Amino acid sequence: MEHLKDPVGENFTSVMEFVLLGFSDIPNLQVFLFGMFLLVYVITLLGNGIIILITKADQALQTPMYFFLSNFSFLEICYVSVTLPRMLLNLWTQRRHISLFACATQMSFVLMFGNIECLLLTVMAYDRYVAICNPLHYPLVMNPRACVQLVAACWITGVLVEIGQTCQIFSLPFCGSNQINHFFCDIPPILKLACADTFLNEILVFTVAVLFVMTPFLLILGSYSKITSTILRLPSATGRAKAFSTCSSHVTVVTLFFGSAVIAYLRPKSRNSSNTDKFLSLFYTIVTPMFNPLIYTLRNKDVLMALRKLLP
């Protein structure tokens, strides 16, 4: 990514709107993509909505773990709703223009929900750590008030940080090209359009990524190393299998989400990385939220039992 743009010869007309190119490079597949992404959106809304419903309706699921899971499912609905409706509209109408304010708003919410998801996954790992490594203290440590405070802290932190970061990015001057080679307003393609020095912005992006992506990932890794050590010391094979089963869904979700997010935001950028960024973003903003309900449902006996009670 270029740190300093040469203003010589540039059109200095201030950009008031952008064009989200999305998947315009494959015009013959626009209808197919619309149908596919519409199906993905419906599945994501239904899957996460059902998890929220059963965790509220079934008394057996009134525990901290499922409280965090219901909040996580609500977050996934919010996360995917920031990008998919706009992308579906663009695919259907072929009108890809987005105003500067709408672009800044979308970016702010995408980054905000992404950061909150990283923090919430860390809280869920901490919940499993306390439950398995300190079971006697679990009811005291993870009491209802503490659970609400942890979730509230995730939301407040994510909101405050990303509002500041978005304001800093959109305080840059934009001129010349207004075409964003992406399906939503993400940081790397936006910074490429700025006709000013973006070095400080890139440093801030990297710092926020380390704080909200790498640090939570390392904390989760540390939690699960302790959890694995504790489980392996259990005398009963049945007990070990049960303990591992309570963590397997969360580990799968963490791997899917953090794997793509870490590569997208912390890998070295190049001039030809736009398509790779687009693919990785598609994975962690759309594909992962769709699979999360399936992962938690198919690998969790308690959720399956609650689902059978709910269905006639």
Results as ranks from 00 to 15, higher is better:
179 Q>N: 04
124 M>R: 06
217 F>M: 08
19 V>N: 08
209 A>D: 10
171 S>N: 13
291 F>N: 02
255 T>V: 14
312 P>G: 13
95 R>W: 14
121 L>I: 04
19 V>F: 10
69 L>H: 08
209 A>Y: 07
171 S>I: 02
24 S>E: 15
117 E>R: 14
17 E>M: 06
42 V>M: 11
266 L>H: 08
44 T>N: 09
98 I>H: 06
65 M>N: 14
26 I>S: 14
180 I>F: 03
122 T>F: 12
180 I>N: 03
16 M>D: 15
120 L>H: 08
68 F>N: 03
55 T>R: 10
163 I>L: 12
292 N>G: 05
8 V>W: 09
296 Y>E: 02
212 F>G: 07
105 T>I: 09
4 L>F: 01
20 L>R: 08
176 G>H: 00
265 Y>T: 08
188 P>S: 03
240 R>F: 06
39 L>E: 00
212 F>M: 09
241 A>E: 03
126 Y>Q: 08
137 H>V: 11
294 L>R: 01
296 Y>W: 10
284 Y>C: 05
249 S>D: 13
197 D>C: 00
97 H>L: 05
68 F>P: 02
198 T>G: 00
226 K>R: 14
27 P>F: 05
290 M>D: 05
219 L>N: 01
184 F>E: 03
309 K>H: 15
25 D>P: 04
129 Y>N: 04
117 E>T: 15
234 L>M: 15
118 C>E: 04
170 F>K: 00
281 S>N: 14
210 V>A: 03
175 C>L: 01
157 T>N: 03
